[in-house]
Design a protein around this nucleic acid. Structure first.
Lengths: 109, 109
DNA sequence: CGTGTAAGGAATTCTGACACG
DNA sequence: CGTGTAAGGAATTCTGACACG
C-alpha cells in the first residue's frame, strides 16, 4: 500500500533504455507480449515506473536464459493469482478476527 | 543514504508539469534562479527526481506567498549549511565514540 | 521468436526574445 | 520580478514494416 514513488508511471522510454541497457525495441516488444504495461501521455508517449524498470531487467534476464515470452507471461499470471489468493485469505482471517474481537482499522492504530 | 528512487533524476519536464501543475516556464525559471538543479540527457532534455518535484511545489507555494526567488535561495543555502554542520558534528561525535569504544560501521551491525 | 533498422510523422523539449507590470 | 507566448530548431517517441533466423 505504499505506491508513493516506486509505482508511479513517470519515466519515458529513453530514460528506461538508459536505466536498463535494453533497446527501445526490446522494451516495446515486451509490452506487445503483455509482460509490461506502461501508461501513456495524452500525446501517446509511454510512461514507466521504477517497478517497471526492475521488471524489465528480470524479463530480459529470463529471455537471455532461453525462456520464451509466452512462458514468462504464464509465470507472471501464476504469481499474480497466488498473490490474489493470499490477499483473499488474509482478508478472511482479518474478518474473523474482527467478528471475534471488534473492529480496528489495522494493527496498533 | 537511501537515494534509491526519490533522488534519481529520471522525470522529464512534461511529466513534472503534470505532476506539479506548474507551467514549464515556471519550472525552467526556478532553475534559472538556481533553486532547482535538473540533470540533462545527452540531447539536452532536463531530468528531475521526485525530490525535485516536491521541492518545486514548495518553491511555488512560497512565491505565491510573496517570497522572492532570491529570498528562497538564501533560505535554501541556510538550510544546506545547517545540514552540513549537523553532519560534521555527528561525524565528530562518532569519531569520539570510535576512539573510546572501538570501531563499528554503524549501529547494530 | 526476439531484435535490428530505415521511414515518415507527430509529440516533446530547448533557447532567446518580447511583453506586461 | 515572475510568467505567458510565438518562433524556429533539435531531440524524442510513435507505428508499421521488412529482415534475419
Amino acid at each position: 500500500m505504499d505506491s508513493s514513488y516506486k509505482d508511479k508511471k513517470v519515466i519515458t522510454i529513453g530514460i528506461v533504455r538508459d536505466l536498463t541497457g535494453l533497446s527501445e525495441r526490446q522494451i516495446r516488444y515486451y509490452e506487445e507480449r503483455k509482460l509490461i504495461f506502461p501508461e501513456r501521455t495524452p500525446g501517446g508517449s509511454r510512461k514507466y515506473s521504477f517497478s517497471d524498470v526492475e521488471l524489465l531487467v528480470e524479463i530480459a534476464n529470463k529471455i537471455e536464459d532461453g525462456v520464451q515470452t509466452h512462458e514468462i507471461r504464464k509465470e507472471m499470471i501464476r504469481a499474480q493469482k497466488k498473490q490474489t489468493q493470499d490477499e483473499i485469505r488474509r482478508k478472511m482471517i482479518q474478518g474473523q478476527l474482527n467478528a471475534q474481537f471488534g473492529l480496528r482499522k489495522g494493527p496498533s492504530a
